[in-house]
């Protein structure tokens, strides 16, 4: 790419280009396909929201991006995980061995990740500052003293009062909201190009969640970072994501600009999901659950994965043939036979 890309100043264009990503787990009960033929693209400075229920493959598909999968997982041949590095070069992460130095540089350096459980993501035996400094020193090549200054700065930026004091505290001395903010500080301290946030606010109270969402947006604008935001909460997605991809049983069933998908959902699963959400604004409405249960990953339905729960299924079509993604509007595509 060009020199402007290397300087990180070009404002648009893709930074991540995933094609044909399939992840299979070997288990005692047989192979389980957690993610199947997933494609997505992420542009610089944008936020992609991944929505889906348990077992939909949200986490697995993003962990694959930095090869953070357990040993029994396998990324199928033919998958391409294109990443434009900070120096402007495109690399294919899928071809790199998980334990290679190249992947280690990638983790945290190019793609950082925030997990749901802030307590589980920090080591309890090191101070918070210690853990931020480790990331800074590894990826930004600065000395101990400078790393400490940067760590205090980061904690301050994420809104932790008395950062100079907090930097020497252990994770257990911080409240849940503060720990999650510290986690964000760790993730952002290396100036990653892409931030993957895996249910970063699910374990937090709404008041803290609102603070964290606001903070993430502000920081993102500041450093022009791209973000993949994983959640099962449509309300949160509506507030943070530019585009959303709805996942069901390892597939992306619908994607498009957030407002469009929420205002005019096409896939019966997206329609059902939006109807099932309780709302503070409409008290008298009886909720409409999506019928049936999420199938076990060991018993993946044939054809369209959603056909077992779909009220608009067409016999002989949906249970036999895989629907292909079709464009239904500008940037809005749906994988459903109703729109094929």
């Amino acid at each position: 790419m060009t020199a402007t890309a290397a300087a990180g100043t070009d404002s648009a264009g893709p930074i991540l280009d995933v094609q044909g990503l399939t992840v299979t787990f070997r288990t005692d009960e047989g192979p389980v396909t957690a993610v199947e033929s997933v494609d997505f693209r992420l542009d610089r400075g944008r936020t992609l929201g991944l929505v889906g229920e348990s077992g939909s493959g949200k986490s697995v598909s993003t962990k694959a991006l930095i090869k953070l999968l357990p040993k029994n997982a396998k990324i199928a041949e033919g998958a391409r995980i294109g990443l434009r590095r900070k120096d402007g070069d495109w690399i294919d992460v899928a071809t790199l061995p998980a334990d290679s130095a190249a992947v280690r540089r990638l983790r945290g350096g190019e793609i950082a990740m925030i997990f749901q459980e802030p307590m589980a993501s920090f080591s309890p035996v090191y101070t918070v500052g210690n853990q931020i400094m480790e990331a800074i020193r590894r990826h930004r090549g600065v000395g101990k003293r400078e790393a400490r200054t940067l760590a205090v700065e980061m904690l301050d930026q994420v809104g932790i009062a008395n950062a100079a004091l907090r930097v020497d505290q252990y994770p257990h001395e911080l409240s849940g909201g503060m720990r999650q903010r510290a986690m964000i500080a760790v993730a952002l301290s290396t100036r990653p190009a892409v931030l993957i946030a895996d249910e970063p606010t699910t374990a937090l109270d709404v008041t803290i969640q609102a603070q964290i969402l606001k903070l993430m947006r502000a920081l993102q604008d500041q450093v022009r970072m791209s973000m993949i935001f994983i959640t099962h909460d449509m309300g949160v997605i509506a507030r943070v994501a530019d585009d959303i991809a709805v996942m069901y049983l390892g597939r992306i069933v619908e994607r498009g600009p957030t407002r469009t998908v929420i205002a005019d959902p096409k896939h019966p699963y997206t329609v059902g999901l939006l109807k099932a959400i309780p709302s503070m604004g409409k008290l008298e409405r009886r909720l409409t659950p999506v019928p049936g249960d999420i199938p076990s990953p060991l018993e993946r339905p044939t054809g369209c994965p959603f056909h077992t729960r779909c009220d608009r299924r067409m016999r002989g079509i949906c249970d036999r043939h895989d629907p292909k993604a079709d464009e239904v509007g500008a940037g809005h595509s749906v994988a459903c036979h109703l729109f094929g």
């Binding site: 709404v206 008041t207 969640q209 609102a210 603070q211 969402l213 606001k214 909460d233 449509m234 309300g235 949160v236 509506a238 507030r239 407002r259 929420i262 205002a263 939006l274 959400i277 709302s279 503070m280 604004g281």
Partner: peptide
């Protein structure tokens, strides 16, 4: 304050926690 912090999907209600 608690109610204002709840994100909703309704586009007409502004999210101003």
């Amino acid at each position: 304050a608690l109610l204002s912090a709840v994100p909703t999907i309704e586009p007409e209600s502004a999210f101003a926690p």
